[in-house]
Design a protein around this nucleic acid. Sequence first.
DNA 1: TGAATAGTTGAGCAACTATTCATATAAATG
DNA 2: CATTTATATGAATAGTTGCTCAACTATTCA
Lengths: 96, 96
Amino acid sequence: MKLTELKAIQLAELFSALSDASRVRIISLLIEGEMSVSALAEDLKMTESAVSHQLRGLRQMHLVRARKAGRQVFYSLDDDHVYRLFSLGLDHIQHG
Amino acid sequence: MKLTELKAIQLAELFSALSDASRVRIISLLIEGEMSVSALAEDLKMTESAVSHQLRGLRQMHLVRARKAGRQVFYSLDDDHVYRLFSLGLDHIQHG
DNA sequence: TGAATAGTTGAGCAACTATTCATATAAATG
DNA sequence: CATTTATATGAATAGTTGCTCAACTATTCA
């Protein structure tokens, strides 16, 4: 499979979005359903600022989507590719 | 999906292995079949040292496997999870 | 055995990343 | 309007990563 340099970079960027344990845990929570920034922060025992910074990256990669409701922002998974990548990854680390 | 901290770290490490354009291009070449370090280096226009460093990481994550033949070392994909992660990733960046 | 070839490895450095802290914005509340 | 609450953002910093270079190991061949 011959990849253009551009596609290689884009693929690497996609996987980079999942290459940090904090982001992985954020995704794992969002698989259950949408959550606000502060709920994520509390659950993950991270500051809201740190969570917000990470969500920004995930948003830019179109892995999560934001819905504003009053002063809260609820995040959810943007499409099911994310969930499938996640499951495949789990398969690999479990019996790999 | 509630993840243990350990699994979150392992998942992040797996995706980290694919989070660099050089490694992505290495994988994309190995999808076609096994290749020696120097063949990879030539194809990717990287030094053999740089390729070798990257292959080490991929080996440690069990994404590639090494077969020694004389003084050459041929690398190939370790299992089909890699290919499937790769394809899903491509799906995402193409119509995501 | 000695020279050449294929690959690995460790140190060092530049570039990047994740977090914290302080500050800013925006919406609800009094 | 002023205050509080929820989130976002920029700068600073500590830690990580990917490359190069030099040195090393292992194998082949003369």
